[in-house]
Write a protein that binds this DNA or RNA. Structure first.
Ligand SMILES: [Mn+2]
Ligand SMILES: [Mn+2]
Ligand SMILES: [Mn+2]
Ligand SMILES: [Mn+2]
Lengths: 220, 220
DNA sequence: ACGTTTATTTTGACTAATCAAAATAACTAA
DNA sequence: TTAGTTATTTTGATTAGTCAAAATAAACGT
């Protein structure tokens, strides 16, 4: 069995490669895992030996089919656990990522399946992050963000791509939860500011950096 | 934070000292944790340094107040998780101990409290094992067993003190679940056999060893 | 093309947890 | 008592995961 350290390495590789095929740099992985780069090099070589990754020295690393399979299973556990914590235990959506970070390594596939059924086979977690299917399919649809979308067009928020408690609390406080309707009324590249408006409510000003973490689709 | 290894050591010390004050032998601990005795000696010395236990060389080990506090918290998590797995996820009661062995180290006190509320503050787990209270109170009532009870007296099964899947499956198959009514019709010390009868059903023959793992109280 | 910056890898050391096997202490039975 | 048995402790080694800091390679800018 993969240790939880190995599971974390593989999961973060999956997240950093945008679900796909690109090489992940040692530096990015070190940053994501909060370890020094030398540690990543060492671990990645071990992971290559065990067949979970392919290591291109001095260039980066990518998951093998097997590594990707493990990573998707962990990610599925992480996101289904988040659903459970929010929908069943009514926990704060800003707190569940930390909890899920541990639980994703502790629940069996059997428990995973039963949680999935209990929750009604959800397709996204409370932050709008897509849940990999049992068969290992992960929705990789590309969305616009409040930093890139068309101005004045009616939108629906689909996902928040920042799991930090501070950002999620900010998002919740301003009613920018997944599912909400919104439109951008103004965007100023020079000042780096975006103004968004919900159907009811005062205009809300965001930095481009913050706006870029809020994914949207055209309101249907 | 205590590692899951430390949590396991402390939990098993609590279980082996019958909730109480007696010294636990290194050998018993090694057996329970499935490690060699030398490993236990080493760990126990570290645990003594961190103030979780008191080590009497060549005699045994006992929990300090702090060690007991940690152990009770882990045990509470273990047993509440078992309740959740059986009552909510409808898992097989013979399988949940293995699951809980991992989950007891992964859930936070916050999740613990919410699980407890969701389950309606149960006092025992699916095997009849008492759940330590949030304040650290553990029911230590002593019960008779099918090996020690009065013959022909109507009884109620309260607890099964063997978490192995095989034994639990045997118990379930023969309808000896906690809550069930039963009486012992015959006990033969020489042959080591006990005959038990449920209100409806054929007589059931058990070894004294098996009967001793089934705790009962007088039917009210 | 050459020196400089940056990313990556290597080296050596450390901690937690474990085992095998030898040493020691304690108990037990003659 | 004394020899033998059993439990415990010690010693030396191993594995997983990590860091600090030095070495190296690649990329970049002039
Ligand atoms: Mn994790
Ligand atoms: Mn999420
Ligand atoms: Mn455990
Ligand atoms: Mn139990």
């Amino acid at each position: 069995m993969a240790t939880s350290t190995v599971e974390n390495y593989l999961k973060h590789m999956l997240l950093l490669s945008e679900g796909g095929e690109e090489l992940v740099s040692m530096g990015a992985l070190a940053e994501a895992l909060a370890v020094v780069p030398g540690t990543v090099t060492t671990m990645v070589k071990a992971l290559a030996d065990s067949g979970h990754v392919e290591h291109r020295p001095r260039q980066g690393v990518r998951l093998t089919a097997e590594g990707r399979r493990v990573a998707l299973n962990v990610l599925r556990k992480h996101r289904l656990v988040e659903c459970f914590l929010v929908n069943v235990l009514k926990m704060d959506w800003a707190a569940v990522d930390t909890e899920a970070e541990q639980l994703e390594h502790a629940i069996s596939d059997e428990v995973l399946d039963r949680l999935d059924a209990l929750l009604g086979h959800p397709e996204t977690d409370p932050h709008g992050d897509p849940i990999p299917s049992r068969q290992g399919k992960l929705d990789s649809q590309v969305y616009a963000t409040l930093a890139t979308c068309v101005v004045e067009k009616p939108l629906r928020i689909v996902r928040i791509t920042d799991q930090s408690a501070e950002f999620l609390q900010f998002v919740e406080h301003n009613g920018l939860l997944p599912g909400e309707s919104v439109r951008v009324t103004e965007r100023n590249l020079a000042s780096g500011l975006v103004t968004a408006k919900k159907t009811a409510g005062r205009p809300l000003v965001l930095s481009l950096a913050a706006a870029g973490k809020i994914l949207v689709q055209p309101a249907r």
